[in-house]
C-alpha cells in the first residue's frame, strides 16, 4: 500500500529526513517511535503534503501512485489521512459544516453525489459513537477553544467519518488523560480492518498497550534506526532511546 524509499526532506536549509525506508501493507499497524525532534512529525506531514517541507530525494508510492506528485487534497481523496499532532483551530466554521464539506469533497472526487444534510446528520450520529461524543460538539467551531483532549478526539471523529485507507496518527495520545486515551484507542481499534493500514506515531509505549502494533520502528535523527515486532516497544520502555542511538551508532560503525 505504501512504499517509502530513501526519503530525504528539508525545511529551509535543514535536512530533517535523512533517508527513510518503510513499507506498509493493508491491514497492518505500524508504530513509529523515537525521541523528540527525531523527525516523526516531519515524516507524517511530508506524507500529507505539507508545503513547508521540500522532498530532496527518494520516492513514496501509495497504491501504485506517486504520492509526492499529488496535491494534499488529492492525497486525502485517495484515502490518506493525517491526524495532526496539533490540530488546527478554525474559528467561524462549525465542526458540522467542516466535516460535511470534507466528506462531500471526498465523495465528489469519487464521482458520487453530495450527501444531503438529513442523511449526514444520521451518519454523524453513528460516527460520534466511535469517540463516545454527543452531538453538542458539532455546533462548536472547528477545534476552536477545544481542550487538548477534545482536539485529539475530533481528529479521530474525522478519521471515522472519512474512512481513509491509510491513517497516520501523529501523537494522538499526547496530552490525553487515561479516560480520553482509552476512548481514542478504542475508537482506533474499531476502525482497524483488513483494508486499512495505520501508522501510529507515538513518543510513549503507553498507547501501544491499547493499540497493539504489528511492527515497531524507531526513528532517530531522521532515519529509521531500528525495526521490530511489538516487543520492541517494551524493550524501548525499559532501556530508553539512548539505547537505540547507541545501538544504531554501533551498527553504523560496524558497517563502515
Amino acid at each position: 500500500m505504501l512504499e517509502i524509499r530513501d526519503l530525504r526532506a528539508t525545511a529551509g536549509d535543514i535536512e530533517i529526513l535523512k533517508g527513510i525506508n518503510l513499507t506498509v501493507n493493508r491491514g497492518e499497524v505500524h508504530a513509529l517511535m523515537g525521541p523528540n525532534g527525531s523527525g516523526k512529525s516531519t515524516l507524517a506531514q511530508v506524507l500529507a503534503g505539507h508545503p513547508s517541507y521540500q522532498v530532496t530525494s527518494g520516492s513514496v508510492i501509495y497504491e501504485g501512485q506517486d504520492l509526492l506528485d499529488m496535491e494534499p487534497e488529492e492525497r486525502a481523496q485517495a484515502g490518506v489521512f493525517l491526524a495532526f499532532q496539533y490540530p488546527v483551530e478554525i474559528p467561524g466554521v462549525s465542526n458540522a459544516y467542516f466535516l460535511r464539506a470534507a466528506y462531500n469533497e471526498i465523495r465528489k472526487s469519487k464521482g458520487l453525489e453530495e450527501i444531503d444534510s438529513m442523511d449526514f446528520i444520521d451518519l454523524l450520529e453513528e460516527k460520534l459513537k466511535v469517540v463516545e461524543w454527543g452531538p453538542e460538539i458539532m455546533s462548536r467551531a472547528v477545534n476552536s477553544g477545544f481542550s487538548g483532549g477534545e482536539k485529539k478526539r475530533n481528529e479521530i471523529l474525522q478519521l471515522a467519518l472519512l474512512e481513509p485507507k491509510l491513517a497516520i496518527l501523529d501523537e494522538t495520545d499526547s496530552g490525553l488523560d487515561i479516560d480520553a486515551l482509552r476512548i481514542v484507542a478504542a475508537g482506533v481499534n474499531k476502525l482497524r480492518s483488513p483494508d486499512r493500514a495505520f501508522v501510529v506515531v507515538t513518543h510513549y509505549q503507553r498507547l501501544l498497550n491499547y493499540i497493539v502494533p504489528d511492527f515497531v520502528h524507531v526513528l532517530s535523527n531522521g532515519r529509521i534506526a531500528m525495526s521490530g515486532g511489538k516487543d520492541l516497544a517494551h524493550e524501548l520502555e525499559a532501556k530508553g532511546y539512548e539505547w537505540v542511538e547507541a545501538a544504531s551508532a554501533a551498527a553504523a560503525g560496524a558497517g563502515a
Binding site: P72, V88, G92, V93, A102
Partner: peptide
C-alpha cells in the same frame, strides 16, 4: 489552516473560500 482543510480533501480554492467565509462568519 489552509493545509489542514486540504488535508481533509477540500481543494485549495474551496478551502480558501471556506476560510474566508470563516473569517467573516
Amino acid at each position: 489552516a489552509l493545509f489542514y482543510a486540504r488535508s481533509r480533501g477540500v481543494p485549495r480554492e474551496a478551502a480558501e473560500r471556506l476560510l474566508t467565509y470563516a473569517f467573516a462568519a
